[in-house]
């Protein structure tokens, strides 16, 4: 396996209806021994999940705690296998034999940025580790790629020699994104990537993800329980409740014309102004189109 060396390729966002990642009729249930209390009480049993993420699209997955959002992320990362149904990546069925290659093209960004970094290893080493191991590159050969990844997330080279406890949460999340980008993935699975960060940093990270999607044509699965972040970033939204998809569609459909009481209740909890739900903003700023930098509405 070879990896093109040099600056990350800039993909022109291809408005495409072709899904890059697709879940078809997925059923999943944790073995009884591994179920948490919340799961036993009804969550995380996925039933007939059908969902697709198109190329260059930011797809939001929203639902309350225990609804199965993170379980879907685990399935998509190949960390667990469904009991029924199939996962397709780039039109091909995902099989155990294809998992290793798949994992390099689909990268995660986790909720707690500091915990996702090895506390005993300098940042720079952590970012290039996948290149050294998967592509047998030498450390010196990774430097250009490392510099590109770090600059893509707005960090300076000084951070590379630091340890995770020496940087802030926002910087750590940028490092996590850089670590994902260094493999030049096609999909980022962002599992609550901003929920552990303060409001200002949340906005910065959301803007960064939005810019990366636009500049690199990345597909994003953005998992969150915060409808404001999803409304800000994603053009497609899937709503999950107790392991079942209760609503799915474009941002406008789901936020503007919710079909289910559950979604209506979620929307009622957040003022429209915080979702950017005014008619004008919906028609003038569709999230998956290349647009200028938007600014996250202030959150209370």
């Amino acid at each position: 396996m070879t990896l093109p060396i040099g600056p990350p390729r800039v993909r022109t966002p291809r408005p495409s209806t072709e899904p890059i990642l697709e879940l078809r009729n997925i059923d999943f249930c944790y073995p009884a021994a591994r179920r948490s209390t919340a799961e036993v009480l009804g969550g995380a049993r996925l039933t007939k999940i059908n969902m697709s993420i198109r190329r260059g699209e930011a797809h939001g997955l929203i639902g309350e705690s225990g609804s199965g959002k993170s379980t879907i992320a685990k399935l998509l990362l190949g960390l667990t296998a469904p009991q029924a149904g199939q996962i397709f990546f780039d039109g091909e069925l995902l099989t155990p034999a294809r998992l290793a290659a798949f994992r390099l093209r689909v990268q995660p960004v986790f909720q707690n940025p500091i915990d996702a970094l090895n506390p005993a290893t300098p940042i720079g080493k952590q970012i290039i580790a996948p290149l050294l191991v998967n592509f047998k590159m030498k450390s010196s050969g990774c430097q250009a790629r490392l510099a590109a990844a770090i600059s893509a997330v707005g960090l300076s080279g000084e951070i590379l020699g630091k340890l995770p406890h020496q940087i802030s949460g926002g910087q750590a999340q940028r490092v996590n994104i850089a670590r994902a980008l260094i493999l030049d993935p096609e999909v980022l699975i962002c599992d609550e990537p901003v929920s552990a960060l303060d409001m200002t940093v949340q906005a910065q990270i959301l803007n960064l993800l939005s810019d990366l999607r636009e500049s690199r044509g990345l597909s994003l699965l953005f998992i969150s329980h915060d409808i404001r972040s999803v409304a800000y970033l994603c053009s497609e939204i899937t709503v999950l409740k107790r392991g079942t998809i209760v609503e799915s569609g474009s941002r406008e459909q789901v936020l503007f014309d919710p079909k289910t009481d559950y979604m209506k209740s979620l929307l009622r909890a957040v003022p429209n102004s915080e979702l950017g739900l005014e008619t004008e903003s919906l028609t003038s700023k569709p999230c998956s189109q290349p647009v200028g930098r938007r600014h996250l509405p202030a959150q209370r």
Binding site: L77, G78, L79, A100, R103, L104, Q107, P108, F110, N112, D115, A116, L117, N118, P119, A120, T121, A129, P130, V133, N134, N176, R179, L183
Partner: peptide, 26 residues
């Protein structure tokens, strides 16, 4: 069970290397 081990795993780092470089030092 930590996230940095999970993060290393999904980046294709072999388990033996994860054990030696990530798990045991910590």
């Amino acid at each position: 069970d930590s996230q940095y081990v999970l993060a290393a795993f999904v980046r294709g780092i072999p388990f033996s290397r994860i054990l030696i470089h990530h798990v045991l030092p910590n």
